[in-house]
């Protein structure tokens, strides 16, 4: 009889867990709506802030308002997808410290999938709507003559943008197994992504730009792909092919972060009880 029991594929299990996570979130309906609305307001404020800065200075390092807005659009949508995929990483330290991770190790499902699908990230719904609108508007406004190839590149770039951010956050969250705390470091990384994400990094001092390319790989998340699409690759501080490869970099970084998570998982020492 037990032979009949066979766990479904990882994708199917992820879908099951998302269903469960959504049902859990819907238990608090008022919370659901309010958080989504709150997220949109938060994003709108940050967009207004970018607008004010560019308006005040006319342009940033030779990038016009619409061009900066386009960088922002890519980042916005990337960040929203990242929120759907990785929002639960913020709860990793609680999950590990309280021992909820025990049960992830007991089920025939990959523990990372269980962590990521722990609860449906409500704010992500607002972010997605907002991100899609901003991206569509800025992409139309930007001085780009769209072709099939450039649209495909844009989509890949947005997914890559999400993966870059998710990779960084996942790598940091993996430290939880040893440090038992990761949210302060996650906050720092998040602040860097939010603060520098929507700007053309070429205006920054070279050292900082390099740091944001090779240490905290923010450049691949919006600036490089935007430079490619806006045809401003001449002012990049890295070889052009690297800017073109941004989506691939996102994929590779995320794969590396997943491996890192599984290695760090061995250090899990379940809290006593």
């Amino acid at each position: 009889m037990a032979e009949l029991t066979k766990p479904p594929s990882a994708m199917r299990q992820y879908a099951i867990l998302l269903r469960v996570g959504l049902a859990s979130a819907m238990q608090y309906r008022a919370d659901f709506v309010m958080t989504a609305v709150g997220a949109i307001c938060y994003e709108a404020v940050s967009l207004a802030f970018v607008g004010v800065i560019v308006y005040a200075f006319g342009s940033i390092g030779g990038w016009s308002l619409v061009e900066v807005a386009f960088v922002y659009g890519i980042r916005s949508m990337g960040h929203a997808l990242h929120g759907i995929l990785s929002g639960q990483l913020w709860t990793a330290d609680g999950v590990v410290r309280r021992g909820e991770f025990d049960r992830y190790l007991l089920r025939p499902v990959n523990p990372l999938i269980q962590l990521l699908a722990r609860r449906f990230q409500v704010t992500a719904v607002g972010d997605i709507v907002f991100g899609a609108v901003v991206l569509a508007v800025t992409a139309v406004a930007a001085p780009i003559s769209w072709s099939l190839a450039s649209v495909v590149f844009l989509i890949a770039a947005v997914i890559g943008s999400a993966l870059v951010e998710s990779a960084v956050m996942l790598a940091i969250a993996s430290l939880t197994f040893r440090l038992l705390a990761s949210s302060p470091i996650l906050s720092v990384a998040d602040t860097v992504f939010v603060t520098f994400g929507p700007y053309p990094l070429s205006v920054l001092p070279r050292t900082v730009a390099h740091l944001l390319t090779f240490v905290l790989p923010l450049a691949y998340a919006a600036f490089f792909p935007a430079a490619v699409l806006l045809d401003r690759t001449t002012e990049l501080f890295v070889p052009t092919w690297l800017a073109f490869a941004s989506p691939v970099v996102g994929l590779l970084l995320y794969a590396a972060a997943v491996l890192f998570f599984h290695r760090q998982m061995r250090h899990y020492s379940s809290p006593g009880h």
């Binding site: 766990p7 479904p8 238990q27």
Partner: peptide, 21 residues
Amino acid sequence: QLWWDLPLRESFRAVRDLYGV
């Protein structure tokens, strides 16, 4: 090990689905 916010019945369904019963 159950889902805190879900009715027990839904928890059972989730377990059955995840194990492929």
